[in-house]
Design a protein around this nucleic acid. Structure first.
Lengths: 398, 398
DNA sequence: CTGTTAGCGCATTCAA
DNA sequence: TTGAATGCGCTAACAG
């Protein structure tokens, strides 16, 4: 039915072993023989059987990228960058739209529209008679795939198991994690198992695991976002503007990201000797920001600023404020986090903290591939940068 | 080294075949035996070797979801929904944030914050001592995985080949496709090959392929968005408001989505006997909308409305208009497409066309699984709904 | 209901 | 530089 390596061997009048060798390009093969084999491959439109090679070689070319919410650009940008660095088509040569937007800042540094079309055309041109060539090129390629956990710990574990079962070459865990000790232990155990089996584990935007009990660390590299410092700078900015009654719309409880941002916020407050305002926990989405703001205002009507868990939440905060007839930043200042592409489009544009999501994702991809050396000690801290825009200003009456 | 099925068999004092049977649950096995085997599995912390089973069974549990841009919520929402319907944790029980937001419309129908936390807690609870149980449950699970093509035809083909090589159980192609005949032919050929090998192919948000030359169609089911009618309704709305000079910021050329939306727009104009305004092509991102608007205004300063390729582009259009000192919709009306979650947060809120992305994605997932019967004729047309909000109004001077 | 027997398609020894 | 032989771990007939 489907054509196998043996068929190719027969067609090329060589042994299966030889075909295997030219396909994997690891052993010396005579040029003439190689040519003959390649022709047979093309003529038969042969596609290697992945499971079979994985079984024989005891490794696969699958790389799993776990994300908490695939519909959230925060994860989409990281995942896209990682996949670009790893996957089909090579080293991130085709930057995605949003990736590009996230790198620069949209219209502040516009990209030529025509340039892009030219690129697309060129790429397209090659897909012409190259369909066979592509399948050949797919030879050394890794299959980078993203898995959406939806923030569910059970799913995270399930995906890890599925990836383990596939003998994945690498696994990248993105974004913060749940802080539940049992879950953490389960994940750590799973990662240790994966590492044992030769899977490279990379953490991107997630704080390092605790040290393993003994021997090799399970994690090859960790890229941790400095959420704490970023959050601190943000609140310091508000404080400098003169705000003293600051509300906080936090992310879900028991999440590292939530906790770190909150800690940075509190550190700034404490350092300035300012009392903490009301805090409400919610999800990382806009309706959560909306609801939380309603509650915040109910508890403390004289707030002059609201800090949000992230930009998406900030959008909800703004909506709630507007619906109350409050102006931004005239009546209340609002701040976000992450500097997602749409942050600059909010009205007014959102003051936020920029995380280099695209760079971090791409780097995680290279780390997963082993193309890039891991940082000293295995852990790199990624700095967050305060971005001041129009949504924050002096408090009313100042 | 790693524990194999044989180890489990030895531990449970049964034959390998029996272990395989209880693991796959396809054949009758005595309760006592099953119990013994399960215990052995747990004790040994056995994880099946995916490649080996795939090789032996000639099928894998991989399901590939191809998207054009993973950082774009348009794709994120569909992919998340599909993955939810297919993947770990079962039938979309854990709706993602954005998925939920996209289904209802954010604060217009708020979801309880507390409810959610309760759910999370509950889910978490089960991850407790259940880590073994999860790996067991992963038994029948499919590994739904998303692949980011970045809009590149070459990558699309490469991913398809990679998936073919893995003997994927199903493949879902989301979003519009390039209209280049050569690329289309290459994709069609690839899909035919996949279908032959038993991979179920589903198109979601993509128009049907041409009929196959003969025999079985390569595509199991197609869910096509009715972009044409949606676009037509949108322009009719503008026309009804009194607009006569309407600019259009289109998506990339040679893409089905771009063409269909443009056709709907033109159909409305033609039906009303109104001359077509200027049209500029760009990418599906905000900076493209910004640049295009500048050009549109240059060409035709007296435009009273701008229709955008999608909501993201519309954001850029709004930004450009604002920077010019033009008010929306006072001076110029703006319309988007897709009704992404953030559309309601634009200021003013975006008039747009809603596509049931979440539902379509989930349905595509079920179709890929074979859980749901394909539509009559294999093709279902998904209706698009006009959503009128504040960004459109009567033209100035009316 | 359970054990035995064969491969699945390929990568890798080992010889030649 | 190439071929022949072996086994990766599992599933699927086929017996019993």
């Amino acid at each position: 039915m489907t054509v196998t390596l043996a068929d190719v061997a027969a067609r090329a009048r060589v042994s299966p072993a030889t075909v295997s060798r030219v396909l994997n390009g690891n052993y010396p093969v005579a040029a003439a023989t190689r040519e003959r084999v390649m022709r047979a491959v093309d003529e038969l439109d042969y596609v290697p059987n992945g499971p079979a090679s994985s079984l024989a070689a005891a490794t696969s070319d699958l790389v799993g990228i776990l994300v908490n919410d695939i519909a959230d650009p925060f994860f989409g940008i990281m995942a896209g960058a990682a996949q670009g660095a790893i996957g089909a088509g090579g080293a991130g040569d085709a930057l995605t739209e949003a990736g590009r937007a996230a790198a620069g800042t949209a219209h502040e540094r516009p990209t030529g529209t025509s340039t892009d079309k030219a690129t697309a055309k060129a790429t397209d041109k090659t897909s012409d008679k190259t369909s066979e060539k592509v399948s050949e090129k797919a030879g050394g390629e890794k299959l980078a795939v993203v898995c959406n956990t939806g923030g569910s710990p059970a799913r995270e574990l399930t995906y890890l198991t599925l990836l383990q079962r596939q003998r994945a070459a690498a696994v990248i865990l993105t974004g913060g994690s749940l802080e539940d000790p049992e879950h953490l232990a389960a994940v750590a155990a799973k990662l240790a198992r994966l590492a044992e089996a030769g899977t490279r584990v990379v953490l991107c935007g997630r704080p390092p695991l605790g040290e393993p009990p003994a021997g090799e660390p399970a994690v090859a590299a960790t890229l941790a976002f400095d959420n704490r410092t970023g959050a601190r700078r943000l609140t310091e900015h508000l404080l400098a503007l003169g705000h003293r009654r600051i509300g906080y719309v936090a992310g879900p409880e028991n999440r590292t990201t939530t906790r770190h941002r909150l800690e940075g916020h509190r550190a700034a407050l404490a350092a300035a000797g300012v009392a903490e305002g009301p805090t409400v926990h919610g999800r990382y989405d806009r309706s959560s920001g909306y609801e939380a703001t309603v509650e915040l205002l109910g508890r403390e009507p004289d707030l002059t600023a609201v800090v949000s868990a992230n930009d998406t939440v900030a959008l909800g905060v703004c909506a709630a404020l507007r619906d109350r007839g409050l102006s931004i930043p005239g009546d209340v200042s609002v701040a976000g986090f992450d500097d997602l592409p749409f942050a600059v489009d909010a009205v007014p544009a959102l003051t936020t903290v920029r995380l280099p999501l695209h760079d971090a994702g791409a780097r995680a991809g290279r780390l997963a591939l082993g193309t890039e050396a891991p940082p000293q000690g295995g852990v790199a801290t990624i700095a967050a940068e305060l971005v001041v825009r129009g949504s924050t200003g002096a408090p009313r009456g100042a």
